[in-house]
Simulated assay, not measured.
Amino acid sequence: MARKPKNIFVQGAISSEKIATSIQHHSEKTSIGGHSIFLGQVRADQIDGSTVKAIEYTCYEEMALQKAFEIREDIFQKYDLTCMHIYHSLGEVKTGEICLFVFTSSKHRRPAMDACDELVERIKKELPVWGKEILESSKESWKVNR
């Protein structure tokens, strides 16, 4: 049976409770020896003399979920992983809040670490999610990933 794309999107910021619960659920999986976690946080960048106070994330969900599924499948094929989780915010996320949570697990640490790193890079480069930076000056600017 073919696997279906999972919904990776969370409305607003990703809460510390969601992160902690996700980690805690893996304590019963005793074949796991290593986890790697990436947390993306909204920065208070300076743009044209004004500070970013939030980012509003949008996407075409069906396309983004399909692309996330393809990336997940590629990473599972390449690395010997036990688990992989991706959560990405949609809607407004204020500076200092978490907008991306990537969590990989494997029997040994190196596959989890390498997979997490590649997964984050591919999400940033390939996932069709756009961020509009909301500035303190009430201006808006479309975010460019660096």
Score class of each variant (00 low, 15 high):
G96Y: 09
I86D: 05
E62T: 10
D48Q: 10
Q77S: 14
K67W: 06
V42M: 08
L81V: 01
M84C: 14
Y57A: 06
I55C: 09
I86G: 00
G96V: 03
K53N: 13
C83A: 13
M84S: 12
Y57C: 08
D74M: 12
Q66L: 14
E56P: 04
E73C: 10
E70C: 08
Y60Q: 08
I47Y: 01
Q77Y: 10
I75A: 03
D48E: 14
S50P: 00
A54D: 04
T82M: 07
G49P: 05
E56F: 11
E61Y: 11
A44R: 15
K94N: 13
A68W: 02
Y79M: 00
A64R: 02
G91I: 02
Y87P: 01
V42H: 06
V42T: 08
A44L: 06
K53W: 06
E70P: 04
G91Y: 08
V93I: 08
F69D: 00
K53T: 08
G91R: 00
D45L: 12
L81M: 04
H88R: 00
I86Y: 04
I71Y: 09
H88S: 07
M84P: 00
K53G: 05
Q77R: 15
I86L: 13
L90C: 01
E97R: 05
T95K: 12
I71G: 09
C83V: 01
K94M: 15
I86E: 00
V52M: 09
L90Q: 06
R72T: 14
I86Q: 02
E62H: 14
F76G: 05
A64S: 13
I75Q: 04
D48K: 12
K53C: 13
H88V: 02
A44V: 07
G91L: 08
E62L: 11
T82N: 15
M63V: 13
M84V: 08
D80K: 14
I86P: 04
G49F: 03
F69P: 06
A68M: 00
A44I: 03
L90M: 11
Q77N: 15
V42L: 05
S89D: 05
